[in-house]
Write a protein that binds this DNA or RNA. Sequence first.
DNA 1: GGTGTATGCTTACGTTGTACGTGAACATAG
DNA 2: CTATGTTCACGTACAACGTAAGCATACACC
Lengths: 226, 226
Amino acid sequence: MSPKADAADKPRERLTRNRVIDAALQIMDAEGVEAVTMRRVAREVGVEAMSLYNHVTDKEDLLDGICARVMADFRFPDEDGDWVATTRHGASEWRRVLKSHPNVLALFAERNKPMTDLDALMPMEFALRTIGRAGMGEREAVQVFNVMGGYIMGFVMMESGRMFGGGTMEKDAPSPDQMTHVLAAGQLPCVAAALPHLANCDPDEQFAFGLDLLLAGLKARYGLLA
Amino acid sequence: MSPKADAADKPRERLTRNRVIDAALQIMDAEGVEAVTMRRVAREVGVEAMSLYNHVTDKEDLLDGICARVMADFRFPDEDGDWVATTRHGASEWRRVLKSHPNVLALFAERNKPMTDLDALMPMEFALRTIGRAGMGEREAVQVFNVMGGYIMGFVMMESGRMFGGGTMEKDAPSPDQMTHVLAAGQLPCVAAALPHLANCDPDEQFAFGLDLLLAGLKARYGLLA
DNA sequence: GGTGTATGCTTACGTTGTACGTGAACATAG
DNA sequence: CTATGTTCACGTACAACGTAAGCATACACC
């Protein structure tokens, strides 16, 4: 009998680079960066570790693939409205992408080379094009891109990594760690006073707040109007 | 003869937590985060790996120690002038600290708990106090802190991680990697046009530019004056 | 002296990334 | 049909990792 037309004798689907990277990304989202291990990914796709090397050259390559894959999730806003509106949409989309895979920022940070993937670069192209619509010079557009990009990345880093006490205490839990002890010592009065606000502030609102600051600064500087 | 008063029979200086963390930080600066290994640090301080555990509970603890140590390098600007000037000094000092240990951002990013060390929190205290001097409400001050902090971290992350092509090509080197190939394909015209600016712009100037945008936005919003 | 308490060394175990060799499935050429 | 080359998965093996456990040494205080 012919080997096809039989569902049972095709025990495993053909492995591809995409399937490998997808599995790795899923593991990273669910269990953190350090859980992304060649053996763990292999197990996820039902294969031995060494078989992955037919589709990625390294673990490095795998991680690069994850970065590119994440950026490929970027959904380009339409560019019909004025550049400020498009910028706002683009920025919040960028933040959405980063937040939907919160651990990818750690990857970005530890990777010291720029992205080369076309998929990963297209959001940058979009951003530069949109900023360019504001009518400033190329050089200024690049500056604005760096500033905005930095703001977005840093903001998401702070809100999801919460490195400065952002979400330590849920609501009013007394925060069992030693931070309370430090605060109780009376030093850091401003931090102590800020804690409830750190816990309660709506991140979306904060993000928009900072973005508006930047946009307002741009308008004030260049006399641009929305 | 007595065992003291002889320089030769005191073969090693007493190991301390600080010496361990210093060594780890030095290794991280010189060779990257992944080079910070218990055995490597031990070798650096002239000891076997397991001896480090007398001074740090974990590798985790060691890395936390590095984070705290880096923040402890923060040199507090004087707070005599107006709050805008102090903010500017504080921001550039914060950037200086991060840039002088460029790999620490990867640590910050992969660590999902807030800092609890007093040393690490004092720059935050300083920042909140300075922002508070502007006269806005506590809640707004926290927002401004998050926005400024995010901007600083993100900017440094982009400028030292150069994830978006920032420093790929030194001066006018033709960039041997595959990025050129992608660009040559005609897609990404804005990125292609931006590349020389990405390579040539002065980071200090860019940083000040973004910071001024934020400050200008604040002034415009709150009607604050320098 | 003795006796704890730090501190360091050694050995050992499980897990990591990956180099290397084997073998099955398949395409194409003779 | 057989021969041959390519692709892909498997299995074994090794060095380096974090660290648990046990033992050795040195100094503080009685």
